[in-house]
Amino acid sequence: MAILVVGSVAFDSIETPHGKVDHVLGGAATHFSLAASFFTDVRVIGVVGEDFTPADEAVMTRRGVNTLGIEHAAGLSFHWTGEYSGSLNEAKTLGTDLNVFATFEPKIPSAYQDSEYLFLANIDPVLQARVRKQMPGVKMVCGDTMNYWIADHGANLAVVLRELDVLLINDGEARMLSGEQNPVKAAHAVMAMGPKALVVKHGEYGATAFFSDRAFAGVESVTVPFRAPALPMSEVVDPTGAGDSFAGGFYGYIASQPKLTPTVFRTAMFYGGVMGSFAVEKFGTERLQALTREEIEERFRLFREMSHLEASVA
């Protein structure tokens, strides 16, 4: 089962209390692709500039990610500069240079047309909608967005939300999109806009899944929210890309299974947390590049143990 992801392939310059790096490989589609590649086939659509080298592309192709859909354009790649000071839960953006990403028009190669799963990473909802329209036969569609699109592009975002099976956003985005402060009311208000399920990411506190009464096959009987924990980390080096890595682990696991069931959905939430926890251990994509499936399964075991309450003995 193949996932088609459309989003940014970029470079990041990041400063955290643990150091500073310049021009490291990043972008939503990059983090998502690397994380998902441990579970299933991944195909990526994005655009890069002349500063994107064969070595950069090899970061993805070594993991088996199909990069046929990455367009190489004249100019420089999308470059984000940010810093984390004090709390690592939110980055301060110092600079956003869209460069070739400013005129990005996603092109779907014919070899990608049989993709069963589609992930619309955090980009302009106009582009998300165009890609979705060109992939009418996919089994499942998941998507992401952010405060900028919610605040200033609400009408375009509304079109995308109606096409989603699952939306993955964080707490603040859920409140902003819904206008509700209560998390349960916010979740149901968001799902009323179209998504059949909502996964709300809480950063270091895990994630919660909410389900509507229009849930898709396999989870239509689930009405109770499900909370997956986050692994307490002794050291967080760089939170950039953690949410995209969560999405990659979550959706990659779903795509790897023959059938979507409530158990598969819940297990996917745990694998999302696993991949997010690895992503923050190094700058950029460094940790995901060196990761092994054995490490993933060992950490998954820790997640399960941490959340399992044994029956007490009298």
Rank of each mutant, 00 (worst) to 15 (best):
I3V: 09
V5K: 04
S8N: 13
A10R: 01
F11A: 01
S13H: 00
E15K: 00
K20G: 00
H23G: 01
H23L: 07
V24E: 01
V24L: 03
H31C: 07
H31P: 08
S33A: 10
A35V: 00
A35L: 01
A36N: 04
A36K: 06
F38M: 02
F38D: 03
F38W: 02
F39D: 02
V42K: 07
R43S: 10
V44G: 05
V44C: 09
I45L: 07
I45G: 04
I45K: 09
G46Q: 06
E50A: 05
P54V: 13
D56C: 04
A58M: 15
A58T: 15
T61G: 09
R63S: 06
I70T: 08
E71Y: 13
L76S: 11
L76R: 12
S77Q: 03
W80V: 08
S85D: 08
L88H: 02
N89M: 14
A91C: 05
T93M: 03
T93I: 09
N99S: 11
T103P: 01
F104Q: 11
E105T: 14
E105P: 07
P106I: 11
A111T: 05
Q113G: 02
E116C: 12
Y117E: 04
L118Q: 05
A121Q: 13
I123S: 10
L127W: 08
G143K: 09
G143I: 09
T145I: 10
M146G: 05
Y148F: 09
D152R: 15
H153R: 13
V159T: 15
V160M: 07
V160D: 03
D171S: 14
A174G: 15
A174S: 15
L177H: 09
S178D: 05
G179P: 07
Q181M: 11
V184D: 15
V184I: 15
K185H: 13
A187N: 13
A187T: 14
A192E: 12
G194A: 07
L198S: 10
L198Y: 11
K201P: 04
H202Q: 10
H202G: 06
H202A: 06
G203W: 06
E204H: 13
E204G: 11
A207M: 07
T208G: 05
A215M: 05
S221K: 15
S221W: 14
S221G: 14
V222H: 00
P225F: 06
F226N: 03
A230Q: 01
P232D: 01
E235I: 02
D238G: 02
D238L: 02
D238N: 04
A242Q: 01
G243C: 03
G243Q: 03
F246N: 09
F250Q: 02
G252Q: 06
Q257D: 08
T263Y: 08
T263A: 10
T267Y: 07
Y271A: 08
G272E: 06
G272T: 05
G272D: 04
S277W: 00
A279T: 01
V280K: 00
E281K: 01
E281S: 03
T285S: 03
R287H: 08
L288H: 06
A290Y: 12
L291Y: 04
L291N: 06
I296V: 10
E297Q: 10
E298N: 15
R301M: 13
L302Y: 11
E305S: 11
S307P: 08
E310P: 09
E310T: 14
V313S: 13
A314D: 14
A314Q: 14
